[in-house]
Simulated scan of single mutants.
Amino acid sequence: MFFQVTLLAFTALLPMVNPPTTATLLLGLTKDQTPAFIKRQVNLAAIWLFLTLCITFFIGSSILNTFGISIPGLRLAGGLIIGVIGFRMLFPAPTSDNQLPSEDSIAFVPLTIPSMCGPGTMALVISGAAQISDLPTDYERMPIYAGMVAAFALISLTSWIVLRMAQPVCRFMGKTGIDALTRIMGFLLISMGMQFMINGVKELLADPAFRIMCTMQ
């Protein structure tokens, strides 16, 4: 049971996390940074990803219910964040030659959230937790929970490996190639953000509770 759950969860989550896309984002956001800074952000992003997946799995639905946040709301917020980041990458602010690059951490936002652990990934993890809690009482839950945590660890390790490979790619492409890639990725992020928001609006309009509320008003 442990190995089955680990394999199934890893296979389902890998396309949602999509580490190569985050690696491209990392290249665009760290084009003027030192290798030590990039390495530190990659290490932190892998740790944050594992912690975020575990928190989402065990208490994600409770957090959303406590603050009254719906999955459509989560998608709209994630789409807005991705769109803003994409706009900044597509139209970067002019910088002087003597201006030092920013040392602000990008490990949690945007590398972990919403890039690797976005609304779609969170919704998948929360729905999986709900399905496990609905299993009959005769099921042994400990191997299932252990398998999910192991899958989160494998996902984080895979993402770390892919992100670490971004540095050799950065050296190969050079400054001009990275600048072009940054603008292309910025446009794609804007498109992804808009699609997230469209999906959120569609889910909101399809929600019976929202329809009833609109009818009452």
Rank of each mutant, 00 (worst) to 15 (best):
M1G: 07
Q4A: 05
A9R: 04
T11A: 03
L14K: 04
L14G: 02
P15V: 15
T22K: 01
T24W: 05
L26Q: 10
L26I: 14
L29I: 13
K31V: 11
T34Q: 08
T34D: 09
A36C: 04
Q41H: 06
L44T: 09
A45E: 03
W48R: 02
F50Y: 08
F50R: 08
L51C: 06
T52M: 08
L53K: 01
I55Q: 02
I55D: 04
I55G: 03
T56K: 01
G60N: 01
T66R: 12
I69E: 08
S70W: 00
S70P: 00
L76E: 03
A77Y: 14
G78L: 09
G78N: 12
L80K: 01
I81A: 15
I82P: 07
V84G: 01
V84E: 13
G86K: 01
G86Q: 03
T95K: 13
T95S: 09
P101W: 04
F108D: 14
I113G: 03
S115E: 13
S115T: 15
M116R: 01
G118L: 08
P119W: 14
M122Y: 01
M122Q: 10
A123H: 00
I126L: 04
Q131A: 11
D134H: 11
L135C: 10
L135P: 08
P136C: 11
D138T: 07
Y139P: 01
Y139C: 10
R141V: 13
M142V: 14
P143Y: 13
Y145T: 01
M148Q: 02
A150P: 08
A151P: 02
I155K: 02
I155F: 07
L157P: 03
T158Y: 10
S159L: 07
A166Y: 04
Q167I: 14
M173D: 06
T176R: 06
T176Y: 09
T176D: 15
L181Q: 07
R183I: 13
R183W: 02
R183P: 04
I190D: 01
M192E: 10
M194Q: 05
Q195M: 15
F196S: 00
M197D: 01
I198T: 14
E203R: 00
L204N: 01
L205I: 14
A206C: 05
A209L: 07
F210A: 11
M213K: 12
T215Q: 15
